[in-house]
Each structure stands twice: as C-alpha cells, then as structure tokens.
C-alpha cells in the first residue's frame, strides 16, 4: 500500500518537474493570439482599418478594442477567417469599408520629379529610386496599399487593377440551375 502510494507520488513529482521545466523551456514569446490574428491579415499595411498597420490592428482585435470587419483588403473571406479563429459571428463590412479590386501602384515615369516622398511612405520598400532620379515600383512587392498616392506632389502614381492572366486564372464557382425536388 505504502509502496503504491510512493510510486504514485514519485510519478506525480517527476511529471510535475517535467511540466514545470517544459513551461520554462518552451515558453511562447509574445502574445500568441496577436500573432495568430496577424497571420490571417493580408499584410497590406494600408491603415484602412484605422490602425497604423496590420500588427496594431491584430493587437487591437486581440484586446477586443476593434471589430473584425474593418480590413477591406482581406475581403469577406478575411472576416470569415477571423470569425472562425476567434469563435465569433461573421459580420459584413460596414458602409465605409468596402473591398476594392486588387491593384498595384504604377509611377508615370515622365512626370516623376524624384522627390523620394513616396519611398518614405511605402511600408514594404516596394519603390526604388534616388533623389532627383526617376522612381519605379517593384510590382511583385507592391501590396496595393495606396499609401504612396497622397504624398506624391505631382500626382504621378496611379493604381492599376491586376488583370486576370492565364497564370492567375481561377475556375469559377459552378453556377447551374438546381431543380427543386418534386
């Protein structure tokens, strides 16, 4: 009887020690919920949600300070993912936040005066250029956040919607008549 108790107590102590050690060894740095939310957000860094970037918005959602329907670039799909992640009800976009077609910025290189203001605005360093030199946008890195539009003093940046090409074409959702069961 005693020996059984001792064995059980011994196991409990060993397991406790292992758990305690694991808690220290594998401690998760930062706030895991914020990171999880951030992983769902599209990383446009556009600030259309009213926060200065995706991570701050994620932090606000985690702290229940922001709603889940404030990110237009994420689309309804994004809201759905957030709702699933946070166990909340799906909420459609409000009137002030409507998703737009995906675009990339394009600099009219004849008008650009090389002021570098857009370079400073771009959150993902997608613009290359130097003072008094023409600037250009690396389309592959541009997230379409539109943050470079406002600072440009000569309004030479335009947003071009991404055209559908063979490499990004998708099969459409099948639409067909569903006859009701008689």
């Amino acid at each position: 009887m005693i020996s059984a108790l001792l064995v059980m107590a011994g196991i409990a102590i060993v397991l406790g020690a292992v758990l305690g050690y694991a808690a220290i060894k594998f401690r998760v740095e930062g706030n895991p919920l914020v990171d999880k939310i951030d992983a769902v957000l599209p990383q446009t860094q556009c600030g259309q949600c009213g926060f200065p970037g995706c991570k701050p918005y994620a932090t606000a959602i985690a702290a229940e300070e922001a709603d889940i329907n404030c990110c237009p670039p994420g689309g309804e799909e994004g809201i759905r993912k957030l709702a699933e992640l946070l166990n909340k009800e799906f909420k459609p976009f409000g009137d002030n936040a409507k998703p737009k077609p995906k675009s990339v910025a394009y600099i009219d290189e004849n008008t650009c005066i090389g002021c570098t203001l857009c370079i400073q605005a771009c959150p993902v360093d997608a613009i290359v250029g130097a003072a008094k030199q023409m600037h250009t946008i690396i389309a592959a890195d541009c997230t379409g956040c539109e943050l470079c539009l406002a600072p440009c003093p000569v309004d030479c940046i335009a947003m071009n919607p991404i055209e559908e090409t063979l490499s990004v074409w998708k099969w459409k959702y099948p639409v067909y008549a569903l006859s009701p069961t008689p």
């Binding site: 951030d38 957000l41 599209p42 990383q43 446009t44 860094q45 970037g53 995706c54 959150p123 993902v124 360093d125 997608a126 890195d141 997230t143 990004v168």
Partner: peptide
Amino acid sequence: NDKKAADQARERHEFR
C-alpha cells in the same frame, strides 16, 4: 499564393 505574398509583405515591412 496570397498567403505567400502576405508573408513576404510582412517580412519586408518588419525589415523596414
């Protein structure tokens, strides 16, 4: 692909 693009944007933003 969207996910990859987002990850890349996050990385570039953080580096900036």
